[in-house]
């Protein structure tokens, strides 16, 4: 059962959350294919596998519509990273994120690295822009602070507290590609560093640094060496 085995050998889980039609799928597609494509409204959730260094990473795209909230909450479990997406041209998307998706994330994941990404930068000029950089940044820092607090309750040495807060907010355009790579480079860099540290002993780190522990199978001799045929 190669297929099922391959999928279960995921070392890291990254989840993309945000209100309906803010551009979650486009953001992810841009990163995965380097192209911009119009997408239809996502249903349920979808998954792409990626290899970051030695690790298999599952990038989960969720559906933003209200009726899928229960599903999204389920698929959030075990996420090491949550990418919180807001639409820069739509102030309501921030409210939705605060009122629906952040509570949902808190319910499903003890703590994780959170990054706030503003989308549709190409459209957000002049009066069309409804979300200021300062608002997005405040949201990112606010959420990160909460996650650090949650993490510290379980692990006093959580790596989250050493993450530079100024790197937690990005403004992107999936259409032009601006800023997209930076988001994932930051996440990849931060996580790989942390994973390597854990693999090499982790400096006396205790258990339970957020949701990552559940998704990380460090005890089984590191990451999988065989690249499965199903990895995309």
């Amino acid at each position: 059962m190669a297929a099922s085995e391959a999928k279960s050998k995921t070392d890291l889980k990254v989840i993309v959350l945000g209100a309906a039609s803010v551009g979650k799928t486009c953001l992810l597609q841009r990163y995965l294919t380097g192209e911009f494509a119009d997408t239809i409204s996502s249903i349920g959730a979808s998954l792409a596998l990626k290899r970051w260094g030695d690790w298999n990473v599952a990038l989960w795209d969720t559906a933003g519509e209200e009726r899928y909230a229960s599903l999204s909450s389920f698929y959030c479990r075990g996420a090491a990273v949550a990418i919180l997406v807001v639409d820069l041209t739509e102030a309501a998307s921030v409210t939705r994120l605060r009122e629906v998706f952040i509570p949902l994330l808190h319910d499903s994941v003890d703590s994780c690295l959170t990054v706030v990404v503003g989308t549709k930068l190409d459209l957000a000029s002049g009066t069309d822009r409804e979300v200021k950089t300062s608002v997005g940044r405040a949201l990112a820092e606010d959420e990160h602070r909460k996650q650090v607090e949650r993490a510290l309750m379980r692990d006093a040495n959580s790596y989250l507290q050493s993450v530079p807060t100024e790197k937690l907010y990005y403004e992107t355009s999936a259409k032009t590609g601006e800023g997209v790579a930076e988001v994932f480079e930051f996440i990849q860099g931060t996580l790989l560093e942390e994973m390597e540290r854990r693999r090499s002993g982790g400096g006396g780190r205790g258990k339970g640094a957020g949701g990552m522990d559940r998704a990380i199978r460090v005890g089984e001799g590191g990451p999988t060496k065989n690249k499965s045929c199903c990895d995309k």
């Binding site: 999928k7 349920g44 959730a45 998954l47 599903l71 479990r77």
Partner: peptide
């Protein structure tokens, strides 16, 4: 069995 999904719905 640990309540996490590895496959999309």
């Amino acid at each position: 069995i640990s309540g996490i999904s590895n496959r999309p719905p």
